[in-house]
């Protein structure tokens, strides 16, 4: 939910800075600043809902420090904007192959979701194969050996030696249970 607000806030900032030609090469950087500032502002506002306990002689409350950092954030954001307004900042970089990032991110998120169902081992193996494919690996031996090797390694090293309770997944729990 808070993420949606963040996106809306960023969209509003984006629309707002369109008319300023000077800032145009810095759109991305301005949006980063806006995002950070939005989080600070959100924390500042939410801090007013904190309970105030009745402690004797306490000069500060849970809200003091987040508010303080927000007060610091205001001048700091302005400072960071100045070189952009002056046009002295390095312009935003061009976009690279964004699709690669998008696919990897998507597959990563999907494989994390899949932990619960098909377990850590299978989903990380699938993730490895997809990711290697995206990185244009076409060698079949690699595509099979790396995931299998990883599964064996992570089982013995993490699960057996380090007692990490890697998720088995409902599918396999059902199969072997």
């Amino acid at each position: 939910m808070q993420l949606v607000f963040l996106i809306v806030a960023l969209a509003v900032v984006w629309v707002l800075i369109r008319p300023f030609k000077r800032l145009r090469p810095y759109t991305g950087q301005v949006l980063v600043l806006a995002g950070v500032f939005w989080i600070g502002l959100l924390f500042f506002i939410v801090s007013y809902s904190f309970p105030t306990p009745r402690f004797a002689a306490v000069a500060t409350s849970a809200a003091t420090i987040p508010r303080f950092w927000f007060y610091v954030l205001i001048p700091v954001t302005i400072l960071a904007l100045i070189p952009m307004l002056k046009g002295e900042e390095v312009p935003d970089p061009k976009w690279g192959s964004l699709w690669r990032v998008a696919i990897v991110f998507g597959v990563l998120v999907a494989s994390l979701f899949a932990f619960r169902y098909i377990g850590y081992y299978l989903s990380s193996a699938i993730f490895l194969v997809v990711m290697m494919w995206v990185l244009e690996s076409r060698n079949r031996i690699e595509l099979i050996a790396v995931p299998v090797g990883w599964v064996i390694f992570s089982h013995f090293f993490f699960a057996r030696l380090l007692y990490v309770r890697l998720p088995i997944g409902t599918l396999f729990a059902g199969l072997f249970g």
Partner: peptide, 21 residues
């Protein structure tokens, strides 16, 4: 391939034992 699959499944089954499912 068959060998690998059985190996993988074996690992799952092995891992299964230590889960209190």
């Amino acid at each position: 391939l068959l060998l690998l699959v059985s190996l993988t499944v074996g690992v799952f089954a092995g891992g299964q034992q230590e889960q209190p499912a």
